[in-house]
Design a protein around this nucleic acid. Structure first.
Length: 902
RNA sequence: GCCCAGUUGGCGCAGUUGGUAGCGCGUUCCCUUGACAUGGGAAAGGUCACAGGUUCAAGUCCUGUACUGGGCACCA
């Protein structure tokens, strides 16, 4: 005998292994089949996967398994991302904690080796999670953004962009993260409101006059000021234009200039211009041909300042400068102020606008092509609203800063001859005593040689060349992912067959970082969009709607949940909440219902098998069905399957999951199995078993993309009763719906019986009639159809409502001491001698009468409105008339019942 | 400042083309009936944020307001 409760642990472990061993997830090129391809958003190797990955990949898995069962050649391409800065940060942290070492202690080469080691461990953790989640990823064929073939893709794309002059090196004010010590692209910068101060500082006139008062949030940068700007229309300062003022705490004089960028109403109307440390100021500086002075270096330390502040951290310097300003009497006022701070998306520390030479990709042409593709509907977004978000971003795009001053990543494939580029190269000795190229300046004469491997200098023929120290933005390799996974630039059969992919499933938070760039690169290198559809999923938040984060301590670990509830339950809990485009508030209580659902399925299957002892032959679906509930369940089944498939194709996984949940639990278990029980003792046993088996099996198939483990496990034990010859459900065909099985009359008849049964149960509950007590019930109806249906299926009512004796007639005089209910045109009397409480019954009936009267008044009002008669569609009018008739009848019956109580 | 989304029973959410509302959890009551107490049966609970408008009819369409969340923007 099987255990009473379903235990997912053994089943899931067994199947996960079996699926991999038998390579059921392997995709084969098959010219006869339509390819269905999804490339996984490769998780960063920064640690174990979180619940957000759980959602994103489960959605993909549903689509992959569904399309595979639809007969397509489904290929879900697995892979991992090296995750540049994020990974380097994680590894550095671990290194510091475990060995008290910095990356500089190891040196570049050793550090990179160390990260490769980390990749092996972390990668295995992630692969293990892929398996535990039941994702149909072919583990034998995993890509990594840093492996050899992907490196070839990166080089090729760099080279082509370079040859087209799309890649260039330029000196710009870029986003610099002091903590990560690297440049970032605009897309990697986040903005948040932070409380700070606005300091009003007096810059005295060079002539000894009062000068001007400026307002700033960054007093530590005054030493880099090169001007004070005012709006040209500002009448207050006309007399100062062209004059010079002295920077406080120094004796350097700077001019007062006029520029439109200065807003009249803000602060004092005077703005200090610091081109090297502020983006607006940089533009103003360019317009006025001003020098850009730097006073903060790449480590966030002060440089080029008065002696006192040299080497200070920027935050300390701010405090010190404010203090000194106060003492000097030049601090006029300190205002509380909330300003927008740019922060690093990886470490959340404030971004420093920093003037430096970096590598960029020219974006105008790339973006224009992507924009056109999206506007031409060659790429579609689900939900649709992300389309305009993306096109707006593309329209306002800035060139992409692709160089990162970190060690982990694809090294920029550019080399310099130490001889010919001498002046542009800066070397320092690292801790190991090796000379390392740290800075490259094209302005100072460095000459690039683009090459994947160490080249010979084309100018002098020498081979004393060094590679650019920077690595590429991790998103650069990600942007190539939809074709690099098929080994582009090699023209592989896979590339031909699987590109463009069918669908991208990802979170909306990386549309700009990733999705838009894949579209650009796909168009550029493959001359086609990488995918026609983008399915954006929401963020999994905690139960109160907050973003999950380690520091808040509100993260839920998928592995914990799997251990406790099983992977199927975890998957289903996410899918049930995955309404299109919605964030998901997730707590442990989300998974309890799905876990119970697994148990319900398991027990339904167990029950059916208990009644199949002795059977070992195929039980095909009966062609002829005369029994109402058989016709009914087949109708419900076909409708449910159809609705599920439609929901999946509309990316509404919540609707798909809910449909099957209610069909299986409600229709199948609560009604059909219950009605089947008495039939096990009759000649109809084989017939009903066949329907039970076939409907259950079909539902398992439909459910398989969402809950792969339990469905496969149960299906295996039913296989011998079916004509299926495949070992696993994923290899079988998604259940076909057959409209011929949808019998509207059966649905209508069954609804009547269910309604009457529910009314009887309600009365039983109301008067606390114990289930063990079978009661007498009288039904009266003048409706010929109702009478016929009831008469024919009295056994449904007696079984489901625990009725002992059922009397049916066109008219029945209300028995004494009976409770009454009305369903349709049928009046239900239940004699409850000694059990009935007249006041309670009267109150109940009055309440019901009120509801019906309300409905009557409503319909009368509608039908009395001549505009309604004139404008409403005929079917609506007929519906209202019919409802009115029914309700009036019902009201009469209830009134009769009430008067009978007196 | 601009743009987008949301505001539906205690909580979390659905609601397709307009025909007066559903689900899960929770709550209350009854039930260990021979698949399942991770269960069965039943009940209570909502003027669909607010104000206008269109319409015979609005949770559903339009306008405005408020609040919440998100994105974008050079406000020092």
């Amino acid at each position: 005998m099987l255990p009473k409760a379903y235990d997912p642990k053994l089943v899931e472990e067994k199947l996960a292994k079996l699926w991999q061993d038998k390579q059921v997830f392997k995709s084969k090129i098959d010219a006869a089949k339509k390819p269905y391809v999804i490339v996984i958003p490769p998780p960063n190797i920064t640690g174990a996967l979180h619940i957000g990955h759980g959602l994103n990949n489960t959605l993909q898995d549903v689509l992959i398994r569904y399309h595979r069962m639809k007969g397509e050649s489904a290929n879900w391409v697995p892979g991992l991302d090296h995750g540049g800065i994020a990974t380097q940060n994680v590894v550095e942290k671990a290194l510091a904690k475990e060995q008290k070492l910095t990356r500089h202690d190891l040196g570049r080469e050793q550090f990179v080796q160390h990260v490769w080691q980390w990749y092996k461990e972390c990668g295995n953790t992630i692969y293990n999670q892929f398996e535990k989640m039941g994702w149909a990823l072919d583990q034998s064929n995993i890509r990594f953004t840093m492996d050899e073939k992907r490196a070839a893709s990166v080089y090729e794309s760099f080279k082509r962009l370079w040859d087209k002059k799309y890649i260039y090196r330029g000196k710009r004010l870029i986003n610099w993260c002091v903590r990560c010590s690297t440049a970032l692209s605009d897309a990697e910068v986040e903005h948040e409101q932070r409380a700070g101060s606005l300091w009003h500082l007096r810059y005295k006139g060079e002539d000894g006059g009062e000068g001007i008062v400026i307002a700033t949030t960054r007093p530590e940068t005054i030493f880099a000021d090169v001007a004070v700007a005012v709006n040209p229309k500002d009448e207050r300062y006309q007399n100062l234009l062209g004059k010079k003022v002295i920077i406080p705490l120094t004796n350097r004089a700077i001019p007062v200039i006029a520029d439109e960028a200065v807003e009249l109403g803000f602060g004092t109307g005077a703005l200090k211009i610091t081109p090297a440390h502020d983006a607006v100021d940089y533009e103003v500086g360019k317009r006025h041909n001003l020098e850009a002075l730097s006073v903060i270096n790449d480590k966030g330390k002060m440089i080029n300042t008065p002696q006192k502040y040299l080497g200070m951290d920027r935050d300390l310097a701010k405090k010190e400068v404010v203090k000194d300003l106060e003492e000097s009497g030049l601090l006029v006022k300190t205002e509380k102020y909330v300003n927008a701070v740019s922060t690093c998306y990886r470490c959340n520390s404030p971004i420093e606008p920093f003037l430096s030479e970096q590598w960029f990709v020219k974006m105008d042409n790339l973006a224009a092509n992507a924009l056109k593709a999206i506007e031409d509907n060659r790429v579609n977004f689900h939900p649709e609203r992300w389309r305009t978000q993306t096109t707006n971003w593309l329209k306002n795009i800035q060139d992409w800063c692709i160089s990162r001053q970190i060690w982990w990543g694809h090294r920029i494939p550019v080399w310099y001859c130490r001889h010919c580029s001498q002046k542009g190269l800066t070397f320092i000795k690292d801790k190991q005593g090796n000379e390392q190229l740290t800075k490259v300046s094209f302005e100072d004469g460095a000459k690039p040689i683009v090459s994947q491997t160490k080249p010979v200098c084309p100018d002098c023929g020498g081979n004393d060349v060094v590679q650019d120290p920077d690595v590429l933005d991790t998103w650069f390799s990600s942007a190539l992912w939809p074709f690099s996974v098929f080994d582009w630039p090699a023209q592989t059969p896979e590339l031909k067959y699987y590109y463009p992919t069918s669908m991208l499933v990802t979170g909306y938070e990386i549309i700009y970082l990733w999705v838009a760039r894949m579209i650009m690169m796909g168009l550029e290198f493959m001359d086609d969009v990488p995918f026609p559809d983008v399915f954006l999923n929401g963020i999994v938040r905690d139960k109160t709607g907050k973003k999950m984060s380690k520091s808040l301590g509100n993260v839920v670990d998928p592995l914990d949940l799997i251990k406790k509830y099983g992977a199927d339950a975890l998957r289903f809990s996410l899918l049930l909440q995955a309404a299109p485009g919605k964030d998901i508030p997730y707590g442990e209580d989300s998974i309890v219902g799905p876990r119970n659902f697994c148990n319900k399925i398991y027990n339904a299957a167990r029950f059916i098998q208990m009644n199949m002892e002795g059977f070992d032959k195929k039980l095909d679906l009966p062609k002829e069905n005369t029994e109402l509930c058989d016709k009914w369940i087949l109708s419900r089944y076909n409708k449910a399957i159809k609705a599920t498939a439609e929901a999946i194709e509309n990316y509404n996984m919540a609707a798909a999951a809910e449909t099957l949940y209610h069909f299986l639990w409600g229709d199948f278990c609560d009604w059909y199995i219950e009605l089947a029980k008495p039939r096990f003792n009759t000649d109809g046993k084989e017939h009903v078993l066949a329907i039970l088996v076939q409907v259950l099996y079909g539902t398992l198939k439909a459910l398989h993309p969402m809950m792969p483990f339990i469905t496969d496990e149960i299906a295996m034990s039913f296989k011998k009763f079916t004509s299926e010859n495949k070992e696993f459900l994923i290899e079988e065909t998604y259940p076909l719906t057959n409209a011929a099985f949808v019998d509207e009359a059966a649905l209508k008849d069954m609804a009547l019986l269910q309604g009457i049964i529910t009314e009887i149960r309600t009365i039983r509950a109301q008067f606390n009639v114990p289930p063990s007590l079978k009661i007498k019930t009288l039904l009266a109806t003048k409706d010929a159809w109702e009478a016929e249906v009831i008469n024919k299926h009295q056994n449904y009512i007696t079984a489901m409502a625990k009725v002992a004796a059922l009397t049916l007639a066109t008219e029945i005089e209300k028995p004494r001491q009976a409770a009454t209910a009305v369903y349709g045109n049928t009046t239900i009397y239940i004699p409850l001698e000694g059990l009935i409480d007249f006041d309670k019954e009267k109150a109940r009936l009055n309440k019901e009468l009120a509801t019906v009267n309300n409905g009557i008044a409503n319909r009368q009002k509608m039908l009395g409105n001549e505009n309604f008669i004139k404008n409403a569609p005929a079917e609506q009018i007929a519906k209202a008339k019919e409802e009115l008739k029914q309700m009036e009848l019902k009201a009469e019956q209830i009134k009769t019942s009430i008067s009978g109580l007196d």
